[in-house]
Design a protein around this nucleic acid. Structure first.
Length: 566
RNA sequence: CGGGGCGUGGCGCAGUUUGGCUAGCGCGCCUGCCUUGGGAGCAGGAGGCCGGAGGUUCAAAUCCUCUCGCCCCGACCA
């Protein structure tokens, strides 16, 4: 490919919309262009990288016995009604009607479709196990698309689905996929960390997310520096050690705290520690108000609370409900005298003489004590794990980090097969629901994550395995006959050897060509300049390390092939 | 959905508070000259109904109303 022909419109300046490195460089290097919020066009270089990642995914999926299929983007509402997700998915689903007023959606995922696809064909245990995957666009009308390809409304996803006769089969599929994912991300040059995660709305039991550690990541994870425990904070647990405060209970006291509603304001006003305050949050669970208690310096984990309550919906109560339940405006809720169920975090049980809202405007209570002043309905772990909490497996203090979720593996069980009546007959002729798993990889997000881990102030530093081209050949001056000739010669030889190579044949000053080469991130740059050329040499510069050295032109091809092989 | 902000040539911005000549600057783009080891220089040029609609006014990028789009924070979310 000639640089003068390559459609890679690079930008000197950063478009205002881009915040993080991957987004900036994808725009600046001419990989993508925005079409609408969260919707992008892939330009030639961007598409090439996407295709390379897809090729790696295909190889590893095929290796564990998966077969590729392709399912439609436009999906009829009927199937979604069968699983109840037409209603559950809510405004995140792109919906449309055809000319006959039939309802469709743009598929946000494909569990319904794949299950319906195989339910009429798979009848016997002899047809199992079955593993099917596709690489297809997905559509989710995200509340807030951001960071370019990291969170788009249209995105490319590899989704694999496994169908087994029993738990053992599902387990095999799950761990096969897990290990395939480790190989896929490693081959993409990514350092990932599998973490235990919450299964969320998709349903199911065991699940891991594959996180690319990056400060720009949207997910927060905690991990143990000593053992292999790592989890999304949504799901993370910790080793609880009770540290009962043995102080004698003091007399309950009401104090005026005008305009002090938040924990920060209370601690400043009363001169107490946040750890001695009770945070009382009023929630509405399946329509009924409940109170949740956590220590003032802790954060409530809504997912844990929802599990404890076993409710379908859970949301923070609005000001009107809070006022009705507590008799006070927002900021003065406390457990004393509340008539709704009280769920307390287990850390709360160790607290003595705490500060809590008085359920009365501009008043708090001091020396509140559990058992004496109020009783809790349930005690459970309902708080967010923090850095420094002890590892649930080995007890070491845990660290935290941010991550980009590039893949996830789920054990679905029979949720979809039961709803969609996808069954098979076992050896005893008995009808059983298929045991399913599903396994996703965000392809565009993976590409963005690669850039997050491989860039510097000049641009992208592609790992060889996913680089859009391996090599760029840059003559310092194309007008110099000797240089042009040598460049052409090297270019032709590399092409003949199967190397993916670009020749920068533009009549530009060398600085411009070097800057573009760095920005686009070719792993190998071969520079042909007057000095080295006199000795029959060309100069090789490696983008990853910045190393540069001269090689005789006749040896360039073999040398480059060696670099590409790794 | 709540809060904040932004829409002015392809990109980055100024001008808007206090209405007033022909709407400006940098980059990019085109032509020519020149230059060629890290985004050169000179000369000439193209390109904008100032997001859209309505209103106020002698006069609107600028003031008012309505709308559409986008970005950031939050809530939310495989």
């Amino acid at each position: 490919m000639l640089m003068s022909q390559l459609y890679a419109p690079t930008l000197r300046e950063t478009p205002a919309e881009a915040e993080i490195a991957s987004h900036r460089y994808m725009l600046r290097a001419g990989l993508i262009r925005r079409t609408a919020a969260g919707i992008y066009s892939y330009l030639p270089l961007g598409l090439k990288v996407i295709r390379k990642v897809e090729a790696i995914i295909r190889e590893e999926m095929n290796r564990i016995g998966c077969q590729e299929v392709l399912m439609p983007i436009v999906q009829p509402s009927e199937l979604w009604h069968e699983t109840g997700r037409w209603a559950d998915y809510g405004p995140e689903m792109f919906r449309l009607v055809d000319r006959n007023n039939r309802e469709f959606c743009l598929g946000p995922t494909h569990e319904e479709l794949i299950t319906a696809l195989i339910r009429s064909e798979v009848r016997s245990y002899r047809q199992l196990p079955l593993r099917l995957y596709q690489i297809q666009n997905k559509y989710r009308d995200e509340i807030r698309p951001r960071f370019g390809l990291i969170r788009g409304r249209e995105f490319i996803m590899k989704d694999m689905y496994s169908f087994d006769r029993d738990e053992e089969g599902l387990n095999n599929a799950y761990w096969d996929a897990y290990h395939a994912y480790e190989r896929i991300f490693a081959r993409c040059g990514l350092k990932t960390r599998p973490v235990e995660a919450d299964s969320g709305a998709i349903g199911g039991d065991e699940t891991h997310e594959f996180m690319v550690l990056a400060d720009s990541g949207e997910a927060l994870i905690v991990y143990c520096p000593d053992c292999d425990y790592a989890a999304n904070v949504e799901r993370a647990e910790y080793r609880f050690v009770s540290q009962k405060n043995e102080a004698a209970p003091l007399e309950l006291e009401e104090v005026a705290t005008p305009n002090a509603a938040t924990i920060a304001e209370i601690t400043a006003f009363l001169g107490v520690e946040a750890a001695d305050c009770l945070k009382t949050l009023i929630y509405v669970a399946d329509g009924k108000p409940v109170a949740a208690l956590v220590r003032g310096d802790h954060e409530l984990n809504e997912i844990k609370l929802q599990k404890v309550l076993g409710c379908q919906t859970l949301e923070l109560a609005g000001p009107d409900i809070i006022e009705r339940v507590t008799g006070a405006p927002v900021g003065f809720a406390g457990p004393v005298g509340l008539e709704v169920p009280i769920i307390a975090d287990r850390c709360v049980m160790d607290m003595v003489n705490c500060v809590a809202g008085a359920n009365k405007a501009d008043y708090h209570l001091k020396n509140v004590n559990i058992g004496r002043d109020f009783n809790v309905t349930t005690t459970a772990d309902i708080r967010m794990v923090e850095e420094g909490d002890l590892c649930p497996k080995c007890g070491t203090a845990m660290d935290s980090a941010r991550g980009i979720e590039v893949g996830q593996v789920f054990k679905l069980g029979t949720k979809y097969s039961a709803a969609l009546k996808a069954t098979f007959l076992d050896e005893n002729g008995k009808e059983q629901p298929l045991i399913m798993g599903c396994y996703g990889i965000g392809v565009g997000r993976t590409v963005a994550a690669i850039i997050e881990q491989h860039h510097d102030e000049n641009g992208i530093k592609w790992p060889m395995s996913v680089a859009p081209y391996h090599v760029i050949v840059v003559p310092v001056s194309i007008k110099d006959e000797k240089q042009a000739q040598a460049a052409e010669e090297i270019y032709t030889a590399l092409q003949a050897a199967g190397v993916e190579v670009v020749l920068d044949d533009r009549n530009e000053r060398p600085g411009v060509k070097f800057k573009d080469a760095d920005l686009i991130g070719f792993p190998i740059r071969i520079t042909i300049g007057p000095k080295s050329l006199e000795n029959g040499n060309a100069e090789i510069t490696l983008r990853q390390t910045g190393e540069r050295f001269e090689k005789p032109i006749s040896e360039i091809t073999d040398y480059v092939l060696g670099l590409i092989e790794g």
